[in-house]
Design a protein around this nucleic acid. Structure first.
Length: 484
RNA sequence: GGCGCCAUGGUGUAAUUGGUUAACACGUCGCCCUCUCAAGGCGAAGAGUUCGGGUUCGAUCCCCGAUGGCGCUACCA
């Protein structure tokens, strides 16, 4: 296929700010970005805000934030369609002038009524094309007189319109099935059908990579390219992302905004890796591994790897990617993200930078999400933390334990040295003397030191916290909980 | 309803493009390790490739049909 090695392709992500950047949109953006990077092309961001009713500044910001969280940088834009209205009007007039479009004086109400009637009669719900027959001269006069009218594209009567999709192959629609769609509304604002084509031509896009929900719209666009005498770009439609019940991903399935995943403590790189593998595969290489760095993805990404069938979003797998990425990430790089979590949780650590990094090193292998660092792991970064009641119930319920821990604390306090190895030796010796199983003391100590039943190896934790804190916490837990 | 698209274990994907005991990962289950929980190691269950017909010596792969799912069917995008 000629599209396998395009030189300097130009692609775009063109979200509509009628909602936040959702998972499907993010993947479309990612694919376009990967494609551009792979072929040394240009990635353009265009905001399709021609639906003034439903678009909002807030949503635009949400999309921009989502893009930047995912580290998807665009080369040109963002362009706003709301600021390019003149181009669309010009394009519509050009189409009218060349006989490819005509003025339609039907009102929305009339149209709705006719559609309802048609539905009742079981007939096709398409526009009946009645304004086609208005002589051009009459139409121009009525328009000049101020009668409101829309501009409709004149779809050829016979034949069919087809295109060669880079993912799906040849897709063909009978022209009889395509309605004379509206290009320009009566208020002069373009519909999506017009603005995409006008912009895609104007921005010299070579490849249109977008969701498969646009397949049915494509022939309407192909028709316009032809009428405008423009070269067709390569269309590549990407299968949709579905929820676990195999219906289209929506709010019902939980998080739909990409930023919600940020809030859940997902690493952007993990999310990208996960997303890249939904509906795309690097081929046989996928058999050897699942983890692909951005460089890997860029190097391997082509349209040929895009699958035709829809994919189900699997939270489990995303969680797995996240743990893998957190574990593999250098603590130094993790730190700014963790600090962000801390700010969000209004948590302030009281440790030196070195201590913080050491703690992250120790903790990251068991972190499920970045949020753990502001929640479960507080005891490592501050002396103000909570005891998890189930943990206490599990390992500190025995009344004989607190006095023992206090005694153990005094041994640590007076030990000649304090290290991971010596801490272990001290505890095991102590346990042997008391005729106790070391495990009981270890588990109890863990809760005393961390507030949690789950933690890294106890002695590593002790070494990290340091002698003073270990002594303090082992002693404190022996006291009845109070805020005195 | 009409039109279009899709179909490999629960999920994401492989299968040198018609020749494999249909592979890998996530998830699940078991065992080992052990100081908790993860991780890690080992192992297991789970699809004869939606179903039915063809074509072929041979179909996951090609053709037809059915079924199911999804998409579009606006002066939304």
């Amino acid at each position: 296929m000629s599209n396998s090695t395009p030189s300097s392709p130009r692609v775009r992500f063109a979200p509509s700010p009628t909602g936040y950047l959702h998972v499907g949109g993010a993947r479309t953006a990612l694919f376009n970005w990967l494609f551009a990077r792979h072929f040394g092309g240009t990635f353009i961001l265009r905001i399709e805000d021609t639906d003034f009713e439903r678009s909002s500044e807030e949503m635009v910001q949400g999309i921009l934030d989502g893009m930047s969280w995912l580290r998807l940088k665009w080369d040109e834009g963002p362009f706003y369609q709301s600021q390019r209205l003149a181009l669309y009007r010009e394009t519509a007039e050009k189409l009218v002038a060349t006989g490819h479009a005509y003025y339609c004086f039907c009102t929305k109400e009339e149209l709705d009524a006719r559609r309802q009637e048609a539905a009742k009669a079981g007939g096709p719900a398409m526009y009946d094309r009645r304004c086609r027959t208005i002589p051009a001269q009459d139409a121009a006069t009525r328009k000049a007189a101020g009668e409101p009218c829309a501009v409709r594209f004149l779809v050829p009567d016979g034949g069919s319109t087809s295109f060669d999709d880079a993912v799906f192959g040849k897709v063909e629609f009978a022209n009889a099935e395509i309605e004379d769609f509206v290009l320009l509304r009566s208020d002069g604002v373009p519909t999506y059908h017009l603005s995409v084509v006008a912009d895609d031509i104007d921005m010299r896009l070579t490849h249109i990579i977008r969701g498969a929900d646009h397949i049915s719209n494509t022939p309407k666009q192909v028709l316009q390219y032809r009428a405008l005498g423009a070269d067709l770009p390569v269309f590549g439609h990407v299968p949709l992302i579905l929820g676990p019940d195999k219906t289209r991903l929506s709010k019902r399935h939980g998080a739909t905004s990409v930023l919600a995943y940020k809030e859940m403590g997902i690493l952007p790189e993990a999310f990208r890796n996960f997303l890249a593998l939904l509906g795309w595969s690097p081929g046989p290489a996928h058999k050897e591994r699942e983890i692909f760095s951005s460089e890997d993805l860029i190097q391997r990404f082509t349209l040929e790897g895009i699958s035709k069938s829809n994919a189900v979003f699997d939270n489990n797998k995303l969680a797995w990617f996240n743990t893998e990425y957190i574990r593999a990430c250098e603590s130094q790089k993790l730190l700014p993200l963790i600090e962000e979590e801390w700010r969000a949780a209004e948590f302030t650590p009281n440790r030196t930078p070195q201590e913080i990094l050491a703690a992250i090193d120790l903790l990251k292998p068991r972190a499920r999400s970045l949020r753990d660092f502001a929640g479960l792991f507080r005891a490592y970064f501050s002396d103000s933390f909570e005891y998890d009641p189930p943990a206490v119930a599990k390992f500190l319920a025995d009344d004989s334990l607190p006095p023992l821990l206090r005694e153990l604390a005094s041994r640590y306090a007076t030990a000649p040295e304090f290290s991971e190895a010596s801490a272990e030796e001290t505890l095991r010796t102590f346990a042997a003397e008391k005729g106790l199983k070391a495990g009981a003391l270890i588990n109890g100590s863990r809760v005393a030191l961390t507030g949690q039943a789950v933690a890294p190896s106890l002695f590593a934790v002790m070494a990290l916290l340091g002698r003073d804190r270990v002594v303090q916490r082992l002693t404190d837990v022996a006291k009845p909980p109070s805020d005195g």
